[in-house]
C-alpha cells in the first residue's frame, strides 16, 4: 500500500492542480482570474504528459559521445539511460500553443473591458441584458 502511494502520489497531485484550475475557470467571476485558471489547467495537463516520460535513473535525452567519431557513427545506444523524448517534443508544441491561446484570450478581455468598463462576469451579463 505504501509503495503504491509512493509510485502514484504525483498523478494525484497533478489531478489536484487540474481541479484548482477547473474550479477557477468555473466559479471565479473575474475574466483575468478565469484566464489564470485556464493557464493552471493546461500546465497540469502538460505536467501529466511529461511525467509519463520519466524513467528511473535516466538522464536528459541528449546522446553521449555523439561527436567523438567524425560523421554519424552508429553507436549502440542504451535506451534505458535516456528519458523518453517523444512527450517532450509534443509538450514543447503545447506550451507555445498555450501562450498563444492566452494572448488571444487577454486581447478579448481587453476588448470586453473597453466596451463594458468592467471585468466581472455578472456585471457584464447585466449590462448585456440592459441592451
Amino acid at each position: 500500500m505504501f509503495e503504491f502511494i509512493i509510485s502514484h502520489y504525483n498523478y494525484w497531485m497533478y489531478i489536484g492542480l487540474m481541479m484548482v484550475g477547473f474550479y477557477a475557470m468555473m466559479v471565479k467571476r473575474n475574466l483575468v482570474k478565469k484566464i489564470i485558471g485556464m493557464n493552471i489547467f493546461q500546465s497540469a495537463i502538460i505536467l501529466f504528459y511529461i511525467s509519463t516520460s520519466v524513467k528511473k535513473g535516466a538522464s536528459v535525452p541528449i546522446l553521449e559521445h555523439a561527436h567523438e567519431g567524425h560523421g554519424a557513427v552508429a553507436h549502440a545506444v542504451d535506451v534505458m539511460q535516456y528519458a523518453n523524448p517523444l512527450p517532450h517534443v509534443l509538450m514543447l508544441t503545447a506550451i507555445v500553443v498555450m501562450v498563444a491561446t492566452m494572448g488571444v484570450a487577454l486581447a478579448v478581455a481587453i476588448m470586453i473591458y473597453k466596451r463594458y468598463h468592467t471585468l466581472e462576469e455578472d456585471e457584464i451579463i447585466m449590462a448585456m441584458k440592459r441592451g
Binding site: S7, H8, N10, Y11, S51, T52, S53, V54, K55, K56, G57, A58, P61, I62, L63, E64, A66, H67, G71, A72, A74, H75, V77, V79, M80, Y82, N84, P85, L86, P87
Partner: peptide, 29 residues
Amino acid sequence: WGDPQSPASTHVSPYYLNHSLEDTATPNV
C-alpha cells in the same frame, strides 16, 4: 511513476533514440 518498463517508454521511443544520430547527426534527440 518512473518505471522504465512502462508501455510509453518501451514502444516507439527506442526507435528515435537509436536512429536519430545516424538519421539527423544531432545528439539532442
